[in-house]
Write a protein that binds this DNA or RNA. Structure first.
Ligand code: MN
Ligand code: MN
Ligand code: MN
Ligand code: MN
Lengths: 219, 219
DNA sequence: TAATATATTTAGATTAGTCTAAAAAAATAT
DNA sequence: ATATTTTTTTAGACTAATCTAAATATATTA
């Protein structure tokens, strides 16, 4: 048995050790979970006793295979529900994360199966993030940051690094979405900002923005 | 703010006082919630302090308008999700209750709105129970128990009183579902059992069964 | 290497929700 | 009207999850 809160910790640990490629530290987890370091230590003991993590005092923490299974399944459910909300209920990509945070905790194997089927077994969610399969395997894909492209390059937007709702709404306002075709018109050497055309229209994008957008080069 | 558990208590209180047409007693709530009477008393104090119920020691409990709003909204969400599971994900009516018990707690006004629209604003759930609208109003409907019909009566099944999964699966096995047309062939005076045809096929139904099925008389 | 800074853990409390056992109130029966 | 039964509340304790403040371990820097 794993509680709602334990699930969230396991997901946080997964994300952190995935990003940093090393055991997750107490403070990093506290930040991700928006809680105190003391609370994290308490929880790590509990998770360790339940066999979800490998934990040694002061040494940081790694998921066990049991914990990893739970974390990837949670991510799978989160992304499937986000897909449902966007594809079926017509939500925009900036409005689905908080709802999916709740829905990912619904417990029912058959529900996930049927949902996956209903959605047509999507491989990526509305933000371009890969949806792990039932075994926790992610589809890998070549993706580079928009910031790395050069003048005259053509590309298609396939994902975003940042998931902040305000950032997503900014992209909406510039007509930048998954699948949008962009052409680099100009790149400023000094501040690294770019002028691009998005589906015909010209927009200027600062480096802060272009470093958050994943693209696939075109032609 | 209302917790998951508080929501469940409010729903239980709603159901009980609806059925008994009087304030809900501690023991009745304890039974519905599958918990101890002592825990219920604790919770009643908390709910009372939050203004969700009107409670006087030893006198039983009634929902306040605030509490009633929460309870009916929970029922609305429960029944909408059950409809979703059956209509969109192809679940059978005996497999949706436990999942909907979880989904009813998802917090998002706009989600409920969009779900309602996506389902085509259904008025009844897969068990024939009315789905309250956003104001908590239920659609009323003439419905009588199958047990009250007489020889040669014709009727359509529009609901079930009992929601137990085994009972629902029993009905599946006899091909009895919402919308099924039944004709009373014979009614046994002694044990009140009935022989009926369901979509052409003859079956025998004990009174225990016929008292759990709501129908609308036909012609 | 010793001093300082940072990261982590412990100590001790708090809140929500739960329990069992015992006490008290209300309802029912004699 | 009293005794008995049933219902409800209180007392006291437990777990999960959280907090702040203090202590300790580890890492960094001089
Ligand atoms: Mn998300
Ligand atoms: Mn996403
Ligand atoms: Mn139900
Ligand atoms: Mn139902």
């Amino acid at each position: 048995m794993v509680t709602h809160t334990e699930e969230n910790y396991l997901k946080a640990i997964y994300k952190i050790s995935e990003k940093d490629k090393k055991p997750a530290g107490t403070n990093a987890i506290a930040k991700e979970m928006d809680t105190s370091a003391a609370s994290v230590t308490d929880m790590l003991k509990r998770l360790s006793e339940k066999g979800f993590i490998k934990y040694q005092k002061y040494k940081g923490v790694n998921l066990s295979s049991k914990g990893s299974k739970i974390a990837t399944n949670l991510i799978r459910k989160h992304r499937l529900w986000e897909s449902f909300l966007v594809d079926k209920l017509d939500f925009t990509w900036d409005a689905v994360h908080d709802i999916a945070e709740q829905m990912e905790h619904i417990k029912s194997e058959v529900l996930v199966q049927k949902l996956d089927e209903y959605l047509g077994f999507p491989k990526f969610d509305p933000h371009g993030d890969p949806i792990p399969n039932a075994d926790g395997k992610f589809t890998l894909r070549v993706q580079i940051l928009l910031s790395l492209l050069r003048k005259n390059d053509k590309a298609v937007i396939i994902g975003v690094k940042e998931h902040d709702d305000d950032f997503l709404r900014f992209l909406n306002s510039k007509n930048l979405q998954l699948g949008s075709k962009v052409i680099i018109i100009e790149k400023n050497d000094y501040d690294k900002s770019m002028t691009v055309t998005v589906e015909g229209v010209q927009v200027m994008l600062s480096e802060k923005i272009t470093k958050q957008i994943y693209v696939k080069k075109h032609e």
